[in-house]
């Protein structure tokens, strides 16, 4: 999967104001636990704002996994071979699984699954901006695995140690499965690069379209990041957006070389003094545009999600009714 929107504000930001310490003794215990790198568990006392931040972040993350099934799912019937089709089905199923681990983690904070889904469908909750870009060719499937999942892995590994136990444990599970996603994508691209010129051009074109959106996945620059400082204090965010982005760029440049593609950024070059790659300025207007629902795919993605949910409503209702009748019958027989 795919986090990013981790510090994207919700449509209705929580009221600003002086931070209230609800219970000084519990707060001190909580702070000490978090400072010592310990874990907070579901029923432990926690500040209300910590709970809200986690619900927002975990649910955005879950929504991203679920919406992320859509652009790739589009290609299942068009996979070029049975092998690639089986791989893609497994990957899309994993994304669904990741969404479910994360919804379960969010629910431990006292919010119901239906409320979470309702927030996604009404547009109140955000999901990763990356899924609002279209998947135009088969090469996009490879590039999503390589770059988008690659960026997600960078983002997610620090979350395996975040202070909220159920989230950290869900992330351990997610990260274990994520490496397959990135490697199958790169493998797909390697295969295409060994093909015809047309196929190589297709890969380059996909890289050109996905590069900038991928590095935007790390969120706003540290200086503009709304929630970062508080999240770092709480042990939810362990590494800053800009540090993670730099790490991703440095790791990816070598992989691009091996693959034989270039990044669409003339300013991307090694800076020996910093020991890192420099890169060009990010178009944040585009980023906010997409986050705020004006990307190419926003309307389609949400419409597909809502349709799937509504079309399945009778199945959910029927299953529940069947279970009720069975239980009544067993009760009678007993």
């Amino acid at each position: 999967m795919y986090t990013q929107a981790l510090d994207i504000p919700q449509q209705n930001p929580e009221a600003k104001g002086p931070r209230v310490v609800e219970n000084p003794a519990y707060q001190a215990e909580f702070d000490a636990k978090v400072d010592a790198g310990g874990y907070i568990e579901a029923k432990d006392w926690m500040p209300e704002s910590y709970r809200k931040t986690l619900i927002r972040q975990i649910s955005q993350h879950a929504h991203s996994e679920i919406v992320g099934m859509l652009p790739e799912g589009n290609w299942i019937t068009r996979a070029p071979t049975l092998k690639r089709k089986a791989i893609l089905i497994a990957k899309v199923q994993d994304e669904g699984g990741h969404g479910l681990y994360l919804y379960a983690a969010a629910e431990t904070l006292g919010v119901s699954r239906d409320e979470l889904i309702e927030a996604l469908h009404s547009g109140k909750a955000k999901y990763s901006s990356i899924f609002n870009y279209p998947t135009l060719t088969w090469a996009d499937i490879g590039v999503i695995g390589w770059l988008v999942d690659g960026a997600a892995i960078m983002n997610q590994i620090p979350l395996c140690k975040c202070s909220y136990g159920p989230y950290a444990r869900a992330m351990v599970r997610v990260c274990k499965e994520e490496s397959f996603h990135q490697r199958q994508g790169y493998d797909l691209l390697l295969t295409m690069m060994k093909g015809t010129q047309e196929q190589r051009d297709m890969v380059q074109d996909a890289v050109n379209r996905w590069w900038w959106p991928s590095i935007m996945m790390f969120g706003p620059h540290d200086k503009d990041s709304v929630h970062s400082t508080q999240s770092a204090r709480w042990g939810i965010k362990r590494i800053s957006n800009d540090d993670l982005r730099q790490k991703f760029v440095d790791a990816t440049v070598e992989q691009a070389k091996v693959l034989g593609v270039t990044m669409p950024d003339p300013e991307l070059k090694w800076n020996a003094e910093r020991g890192h790659h420099d890169f060009g300025a990010i178009d944040w207007d585009e980023f906010w545009n997409v986050v705020n629902g004006h990307g190419q795919g926003n309307v389609d993605r949400l419409a597909a999600r809502v349709k799937a949910w509504e079309d399945g409503a009778w199945v959910r209702a029927a299953a529940l009714e069947y279970a009720r009748k069975q239980a009544a019958r067993e009760h009678q027989a007993a």
Binding site: Y101, R169, R173, A319
Partner: peptide, 12 residues
């Protein structure tokens, strides 16, 4: 323990 799921009955 590894997580939770929603389901209408035990079988599902």
């Amino acid at each position: 323990h590894c997580g939770s799921v929603h389901a209408p009955d035990a079988k599902l």
